[in-house]
Computed example of a mutant assay.
Amino acid sequence: MSPRTPGGPGPGSGLAQPLSMPSPGRAVAYLGLFVLGAVVGAAGTLVQPGWFPGGLLLALAGAAGLFLGGSRALNTRAGAVAPAAGWMIAVILLTASRPEGDFLFGAGIGSYLFLLGGIVVAVMCATLAQGRQPDGPRARLAK
């Protein structure tokens, strides 16, 4: 369907637009947010068992700040997804025990709350992020 076909998506429809590669600066920002998410995940892994209720809240607040800050800085949902992906990969890799028997996560309630809470925070921040808004004046329908 061409954009001029009646009933088809118009040229301003987000569904009709082809996917494009992000600019080099934006790609570097996504990569930086990914790495920063991995760092926050590793730091949260170490902090949350140390000071149990406070450390858990601090680790989740740091993750939430990074996820929401990334989405607001880049004004896209991908700005929240990039650090969340880095956080998730770091945390999953740190849950595995080593051959010597060492591990960072214990089998306590705090570890489970950190894992599930981080996932919930990431989903909430990606959902709350502002998506692309259409250009043009702000107007209410049916005035």
Score class of each variant (00 low, 15 high):
124 M>Q: 06
93 L>I: 04
127 T>S: 13
133 Q>C: 00
128 L>A: 14
92 I>Q: 15
140 R>F: 10
78 A>Q: 11
40 V>F: 10
101 G>I: 08
39 V>E: 02
93 L>N: 08
110 G>Y: 12
132 R>M: 08
60 L>T: 07
62 G>Q: 06
68 L>F: 09
106 G>Q: 12
43 A>C: 08
106 G>H: 10
116 L>S: 02
39 V>P: 04
73 A>P: 01
107 A>T: 10
66 L>M: 06
49 P>E: 04
114 F>W: 14
134 P>Y: 05
61 A>Y: 02
73 A>C: 07
137 P>S: 11
92 I>A: 15
138 R>E: 05
53 P>I: 09
117 G>H: 04
36 L>A: 14
99 P>I: 05
60 L>Q: 06
103 F>T: 15
57 L>N: 01
84 A>S: 13
108 G>I: 08
50 G>A: 15
121 V>A: 10
139 A>H: 04
35 V>D: 02
88 M>Y: 08
59 A>T: 00
100 E>S: 15
60 L>D: 04
84 A>I: 02
128 L>D: 01
109 I>N: 08
132 R>L: 09
79 G>H: 02
92 I>N: 09
89 I>D: 00
90 A>K: 08
138 R>F: 13
71 S>F: 00
138 R>Q: 08
124 M>Y: 03
92 I>R: 14
87 W>K: 01
69 G>Y: 09
82 A>M: 14
45 T>S: 14
79 G>S: 03
130 Q>D: 05
99 P>N: 03
125 C>F: 03
102 D>C: 01
60 L>H: 08
73 A>F: 11
129 A>S: 05
46 L>N: 01
130 Q>S: 12
41 G>R: 10
44 G>H: 10
139 A>D: 04
93 L>C: 10
93 L>D: 01
75 N>H: 11
103 F>V: 14
98 R>M: 15
117 G>S: 00
68 L>Q: 12
85 A>M: 15
99 P>W: 03
83 P>R: 12
113 L>T: 02
40 V>E: 01
50 G>P: 00
141 L>S: 04
66 L>Y: 02
96 A>H: 13
86 G>H: 11
72 R>I: 06
76 T>M: 10
34 F>A: 07
137 P>F: 10
134 P>R: 12
86 G>E: 03
95 T>C: 13
65 G>A: 13
51 W>Y: 14
64 A>G: 05
128 L>E: 05
58 L>W: 12
73 A>Q: 11
140 R>A: 14
61 A>C: 05
63 A>S: 14
130 Q>R: 15
61 A>D: 01
84 A>E: 00
125 C>S: 15
102 D>W: 04
97 S>P: 06
138 R>M: 08
55 G>E: 04
64 A>Q: 08
139 A>L: 15
64 A>M: 09
89 I>C: 03
86 G>I: 03
123 V>N: 02
90 A>F: 09
91 V>R: 04
138 R>I: 04
91 V>M: 10
108 G>T: 13
97 S>K: 13
138 R>H: 12
54 G>S: 11
81 V>N: 02
121 V>G: 00
74 L>E: 02
121 V>E: 00
69 G>Q: 10
43 A>Q: 01
89 I>T: 11
61 A>T: 11
131 G>N: 03
47 V>M: 09
81 V>G: 03
115 L>C: 06
91 V>K: 03
115 L>M: 11
49 P>V: 14
65 G>C: 07
133 Q>Y: 09
47 V>R: 09
129 A>F: 01
35 V>Y: 06
